[in-house]
Each structure stands twice: as structure tokens, then as C-alpha cells.
Simulated scan of single mutants.
Amino acid sequence: MGVVKTVEWMRTYYQEPEKICEKFTKYFPLQQEALYRFLVSKGMFRPVIDGEKEIDILQKKRVWEKLALEYKELREWLKGPDIPVFILLSDPFNRTIQREYNGKAGLSIRDALFLFVSSQNSIGELKALLTHEYHHICRIHETEIKEEQYTILDTMVMEGLAEQAVYERYGDSYHAPWVSYYSKQEAIRLWHRFLHDSCNVNRMTREHDMLLNGWRFYPRMLGYAVGFHIVKDCVAHTKYNTNALLEMDAKTILKEAVSFES
């Protein structure tokens, strides 16, 4: 499948974006209106005046063609599955996405990948986003665990591994912003204070999302940031690369991250 030409879908249905979601219902157990609300919560666009101009800019940058090449290289590197990649505009009303992530977001499920992007994104940024999200897809396919059985530790390590993949391809200049929220020593303290005794919390619970995102009284992006440092520490002590780590389970990666034991 690879990168799908979503340009004409957006041109035709820019003012009625829920109609685009009809094309995605085979991937989600939702009706198209409910699916649109869900995808908006993950970063999909809501129409604005003259918003179609964004599509023109993305086309001029040859975003679809360049990411199609990146996808091909990623598949070869990670030996991953061939799934559809849907590129859509991001939500200009979503403050977090616009301010924190420079107007871009991604969503990976087992059989499809969504990139929500804006005209301000560089090709380098978008390649790094695709690398991060496609790594999730490969991880899901490599591990035996069903997604509903994931624990907070599984999710944290998955996020850390995806950023390790970005680092190996592009260095640290295209890391997600949460990578730099805490130093390694701070991450170790946060691990022992908030996560060590909760690492079996199930993905299907609100507690999982609170720990991962740092909601309420938890430090922001707690699980993401600590997961990154766990993977980094594992790599520092083992010298394993992304390919070696891809099928390794989260508990083994944590065990190899010896700085987090003390």
C-alpha cells in the first residue's frame, strides 16, 4: 500500500471532512461521524477559511512523493509490513499540536498509519514523524502481545524505541520535544516515584493514559519521557541498535537499562 494519494480526497471534501473518514471505517469499529470525532482528537483537521491553500503548499513541497520514498526505505530497514499511510492536514485549532509539535501529529494502528501535517513542517520533520510512527507499526507486528494487553511499561518502551529509531536515522535534531523534558537523573527519580510500582497498569485504563501523558498531578509527558531514557540507557549498556531491539520485550529492555535498577 504505502503512501496513499489523499490530496484529491481533501480537495473534494475539505468542507465535509467526515466524508473522508468513510474510507477509514474498515480500520476502526466506528461509524464515520464518530470516527471523524476520534481522528480530530488525534490531530485531524477541522475546516478553516482558505484552509485548502495548505494542500497546495504541501503539494509544492512534494510531501507525498518524498514520504513515499522514505516509507520504502523504512520498510527495507525495519523489514516491516506494507500498510497504508494516510497524510491529512492537522487541526489548526489544536493548541498542543500547533505549539508543542509545530502542527504535526501521528496515529499508528496495527493495519494503518495516519500523519496529520501542516504547511509549516519541513520534509525532515515529516520523515522523522513517519519513522516514529512506522516503528510503532513494526513493533506491534513483531511482539506477540495483543494491543489491549499492553501495560504502561510496554507503551513507554514502545515510545522510547520509536525515538531511538529517529535518532539512528536523523540524529537528535528531529527528536520529539518530550525527549528533552527531563535529564536522565530526573527520569530515574520519576521512574522510582511514579512508575516502578505501576508498570503493570493496563493500556485500557485511565490510569495508563494519566501516567503516559502526565495528566493531573503527574509530571507532563511522564511515561513518554521516562520510556525514552529507559531505552537510551539500555542502548548505552548493551550497544544494541534498533533492529536488535525491535522484537525484544519491554521487561528485558528495562532489565538491560541498569541505571533504572538502583
Rank of each mutant, 00 (worst) to 15 (best):
G2K: 06
V3C: 05
V3N: 08
V4T: 04
V4Y: 05
E8D: 14
E8R: 06
W9Q: 02
R11G: 02
Y13P: 09
Y13C: 04
Y14G: 08
I20R: 00
F24P: 13
F24D: 15
Y27P: 14
Q32G: 07
E33C: 04
A34N: 14
L35K: 07
L35P: 03
G43Q: 00
M44G: 00
M44Y: 06
P47L: 01
V48E: 04
G51W: 06
D56C: 00
I57T: 12
Q59S: 04
W64L: 11
L69A: 14
E70Y: 09
L74D: 09
W77N: 08
W77S: 04
W77P: 10
I83D: 03
P84K: 02
L88D: 04
P92V: 09
N94S: 14
N94D: 15
N94P: 09
R95H: 12
Q98Y: 09
Q98D: 12
E100D: 15
G103K: 07
L107G: 07
I109N: 03
R110H: 00
R110V: 08
F116E: 06
F116Q: 00
F116K: 00
Q120N: 12
Q120G: 10
I123W: 02
K127R: 13
K127P: 07
L129G: 00
L130F: 04
T131Q: 02
H132L: 11
E133P: 02
H135R: 04
E144W: 07
I145D: 10
E147V: 14
T151A: 01
L153Y: 07
V157T: 11
V157W: 01
M158F: 15
E159K: 09
L161M: 15
E163H: 05
A165N: 14
Y167Q: 04
E168T: 11
R169C: 12
Y170L: 09
A176S: 02
A176F: 06
K184D: 06
E186C: 07
E186A: 14
A187W: 00
I188D: 03
L190W: 01
H192Y: 10
R193C: 12
F194E: 09
L195M: 09
D197K: 10
S198Q: 12
S198Y: 01
R206F: 04
R206G: 05
D209I: 01
L211I: 10
L211F: 09
L212V: 04
W215M: 08
R220A: 03
I230N: 01
V235P: 02
A236L: 08
H237F: 06
T238F: 05
T242N: 01
A250S: 13
K251C: 07
I253R: 00
I253A: 03
K255A: 14
K255D: 15
V258T: 15
S259G: 13
F260S: 03
S262F: 10
